[in-house]
């Protein structure tokens, strides 16, 4: 049950951060027009960025762990 709660927390965090970033990049004050195509592309790009960041961070942790830094 704890594992499930953490998964929900992670999904919520992801949705919140993508919404913030893609709202910022795709919608402009006075916000009179929606821009669904931009939001879709932004989401796709955010997920790809998440993967790149994830790989880079985990590589760094493993490297530090191998060299006995942590």
């Amino acid at each position: 049950q704890i594992v499930q709660e953490l998964a929900v927390a992670n999904a919520t965090e992801l949705v919140n951060k993508v919404t913030d970033n893609c709202f910022e990049k795709c919608l402009m004050s006075p916000y009179s027009e929606a821009n669904e195509q931009c939001v879709d592309q932004c989401l796709a790009k955010y997920m790809r960025s998440w993967n790149v960041v994830s790989r880079a961070y985990i590589a760094r942790i493993q490297q530090a762990s191998t060299s006995g830094e942590i």
Partner: peptide, 25 residues
């Protein structure tokens, strides 16, 4: 009135964005 309209739009567009992202995910 522009500011009030902008606030209304802002909430609605933010929710549109949020709903679209949740559905896509």
């Amino acid at each position: 009135s522009q500011e009030e309209q902008c606030l209304n739009n802002c909430v609605n567009r933010f929710l549109d964005t949020n709903i679209r992202i949740v559905k896509s995910l």
